[in-house]
Amino acid sequence: MDVFMKGLSKAKEGVVAAAEKTKQGVAEAAGKTKEGVLYVGSKTKEGVVHGVATVAEKTKEQVTNVGGAVVTGVTAVAQKTVEGAGSIAAATGFVKKDQLGKNEEGAPQEGILEDMPVDPDNEAYEMPSEEGYQDYEPEA
Rank of each mutant, 00 (worst) to 15 (best):
M1Q: 00
M1P: 00
V3H: 05
V3K: 04
V3Y: 03
V3M: 07
F4P: 00
F4W: 03
M5I: 01
M5W: 13
M5E: 01
M5P: 00
K6D: 03
L8Y: 01
L8I: 02
S9K: 11
A11F: 09
K12N: 01
G14S: 10
A17I: 04
A19L: 15
A19H: 04
E20F: 14
E20Y: 14
K21Q: 04
K21W: 13
T22A: 04
K23D: 00
Q24S: 12
G25R: 08
G25N: 05
V26H: 00
V26D: 00
E28F: 13
K32N: 02
K32H: 10
T33W: 14
T33S: 05
K34W: 13
E35W: 09
E35S: 13
G36W: 14
V37A: 09
V37R: 01
L38H: 03
L38S: 01
L38I: 03
Y39W: 09
V40N: 00
V40H: 02
S42E: 09
K43R: 06
T44F: 14
T44V: 06
T44S: 06
K45Q: 02
E46F: 10
E46A: 15
G47S: 07
V48D: 00
V48Y: 10
V49L: 15
V49Q: 09
V49R: 08
G51Y: 11
V52M: 05
V52H: 01
V55W: 11
A56I: 11
E57L: 14
K58W: 14
K58Q: 03
T59D: 00
K60F: 06
K60T: 05
K60D: 01
E61K: 12
V63P: 01
V63I: 05
T64Q: 11
N65V: 10
G67A: 15
G67P: 02
G68D: 13
A69P: 04
A69K: 11
V70L: 15
V70S: 02
V71Y: 15
T72I: 11
T72C: 13
G73F: 09
V74W: 11
V74T: 01
V74D: 03
V74P: 01
T75I: 07
T75V: 12
A76M: 05
V77M: 10
V77N: 02
V77I: 13
Q79L: 13
T81N: 02
T81F: 08
T81E: 03
T81H: 02
G84P: 02
G86E: 12
G86S: 14
S87M: 07
I88F: 02
I88D: 03
A89L: 10
A89N: 03
A90F: 13
A91C: 11
T92M: 03
T92P: 05
T92F: 15
G93W: 07
F94L: 09
V95A: 06
K96D: 07
K96F: 12
D98M: 06
D98T: 12
D98G: 13
Q99E: 10
G101Q: 07
G101V: 12
G101P: 08
G101K: 03
K102I: 09
K102E: 11
N103L: 05
N103H: 11
E104T: 12
E105A: 11
G106R: 05
G106A: 08
G106N: 03
G106F: 10
A107D: 14
A107T: 14
P108Q: 11
P108A: 06
P108W: 05
Q109K: 15
Q109S: 10
Q109T: 15
E110Q: 03
E110Y: 07
I112C: 05
I112G: 07
I112V: 14
I112K: 05
E114L: 07
E114M: 02
D115K: 05
M116L: 07
P117S: 05
P117R: 04
D119I: 02
D119N: 03
D121G: 13
D121K: 06
D121Y: 12
N122V: 09
N122K: 12
E123A: 07
E123G: 12
Y125G: 11
Y125L: 10
Y125I: 11
E126Y: 07
M127L: 14
P128D: 12
P128Y: 04
S129T: 09
S129V: 11
E130Q: 08
E130V: 09
E131V: 13
G132I: 08
G132C: 09
Y133P: 09
Q134D: 06
Q134I: 12
D135P: 05
D135Q: 10
Y136P: 13
E137G: 08
P138K: 06
P138H: 04
E139F: 09
E139W: 08
A140Q: 02
A140S: 11
